[in-house]
Design a protein around this nucleic acid. Structure first.
Length: 419
DNA sequence: TCTGGGGTCCTAGGACCC
DNA sequence: TCTGGGGTCCTAGGACCC
């Protein structure tokens, strides 16, 4: 069997680059996307100029501001990134029938057998690179290898704006000198554990006994042994490159700008989060059987509490009822809350109408909510709220979270006009 | 430095059933 | 009264990714 040819295409500083297209004056400057310098939150993306000061994603905004006071701080715009992500997808689809977006800004392409159409991998990668630049005005980096893993590690090493091809049979050689942290899936914790064993580089890992790794780290250890040799061992990495899978959960959460112990505010937040989750369930046509509450206190201790329903739902009130009950059962009264979250999971086909006590009531709710979704699309988020959440919900949306309000109405057209 | 928001996958214990 | 083992479902928490 001849080896697969996998591309991993990763957009360079994606959020920053998209923001630069909307505001060209940002170009070349140290830019931090994710919020303002004094806000609670972390860096979503930093321009290369900002990275020179040690700023990187996931860093608290306030830390970034200290490291790089002259940086321009920009709020994130998820709609813009989704839109450009689609353009990226369109370009990619012309190069392979098997394209899988791994997130907004990266994708895997199975290029096996496209030689006749596109030429050798390096040549097609350069064509793709150019097409991406001319059609989206965005830079990307491309890793080419015989597995997802090699392609992914390759694109990281090709950054910025480069192409890297790891030839078949050269995988182990390519990986050996790299830090174990360069393997996707090895984070801070695993890195520390490996360091404790005297393992620093992937080559050290590859020399270890497979069984030994499995004993120590379970299923993950076994996969790791494979990865160290460049194989897509285990789980998702093994799967074919193809269309994207259905989601397994839908969630929304909110961190307060200032911690609060006000029951009304907390409840109205739960209502709003439940509405957002319900809405996305309806949009996707999913029915969830498990609802989960997430609660984070001032001291960052975080708990999750879940409840599974007899019948799956996509209704705001049913989600809210569960979330509210879980909250009341678990909140230490008076304790300041930092974050609340609502998650729906365990998706199933819709509730069987026969089992419902009041099918008509259910259906009326459904209709009403769909109509409300429609109104929200037309007039903005603030117009509609369930009666129970109305008062608090309205207060919250207007005072505390004004930015979330008018966004949908002022849909700005992207500059440059390349469709 | 004081830690977002959206996800996925894995582990582990307990309930329950056979 | 003490005690199997396997399978499945549910729940909680944690590592990790972008």
């Amino acid at each position: 069997m001849s080896p697969r040819t996998i591309f991993h295409v990763d957009m360079d500083a994606f959020f920053v680059s998209v923001e630069e297209l909307y505001d060209p004056s940002l170009k070349g400057k140290p830019v931090v996307v994710g919020g303002q310098r004094d806000e609670r939150g972390v860096v979503s993306a930093a321009s290369y100029a900002a990275r020179k000061f040690g700023v990187h994603s996931a860093m608290p905004l306030r830390t970034a501001a200290k490291l790089c006071p002259q940086a321009v701080f920009v709020d994130g715009h998820p709609e813009r990134y989704r839109e450009y992500s689609q353009r990226v997808h369109e370009v990619l689809c012309r190069f392979s029938p098997q394209v899988e977006m791994a997130s907004v800004d990266e994708a895997y392409l199975d290029m096996t057998g496209t030689e006749r159409l596109h030429g050798l991998p390096l040549r097609s990668a350069h064509r793709l690179h150019e097409a991406m630049k001319s059609e989206t005005q965005l830079n990307c980096s491309i890793g080419i290898g015989t597995s997802r893993l090699i392609a992914k590690v390759g694109s990281a090493k090709a950054k910025p704006n480069g192409v890297l091809w790891v030839l078949p049979a050269q995988e182990a050689k390519f990986l050996a000198p790299l830090d174990v942290r360069d393997i996707p899936g090895v984070g801070k914790v695993m890195e520390q554990k490996l360091h404790a064993l005297g393992i620093q580089r992937v080559g050290d890992l590859a020399r270890l006994d497979e069984g030994d790794l499995e004993q120590r780290f379970g299923k993950w250890g076994l996969a790791l042994a494979g990865k160290a040799r460049g194989q897509d061992a285990g789980g998702w990495f093994d799967s074919e490159v193809g269309e994207n899978a259905e989601p397994k959960s839908i969630s929304h959460e909110h961190t307060y700008n200032e911690d609060t112990a006000n029951p009304e505010r907390l409840q109205s937040t739960l209502m709003r989060l439940s509405e957002m989750v319900g809405r996305r369930l309806r949009e996707g046509g999913y029915f969830a059987r498990t609802i989960q509450l997430k609660l984070r206190y001032q001291d960052f201790t975080t708990l999750t509490r879940a409840h599974s329903l007899e019948q799956p739902t996509q209704l705001d009130i049913e989600i809210y009822e569960v979330a509210r009950r879980l909250f009341q059962q678990n909140w230490k009264k008076g304790a300041a809350v930092r974050l609340l979250g609502v998650q729906a999971s365990n998706f199933e086909a819709g509730p069987s109408q026969l089992d419902l006590l009041e099918p008509s009531r259910q259906q009326r709710w459904q209709k009403a909510l769909e109509a409300a979704d429609h109104l929200r699309d037309k007039f903005g988020e603030s117009t509609i709220g369930l009666a129970t959440g109305m008062k608090g919900g309205f207060r919250e949306r207007t005072h505390e979270n004004p930015a979330a309000l008018p966004g949908k109405l002022s849909k700005k057209k992207p500059p440059g006009g390349a469709v």
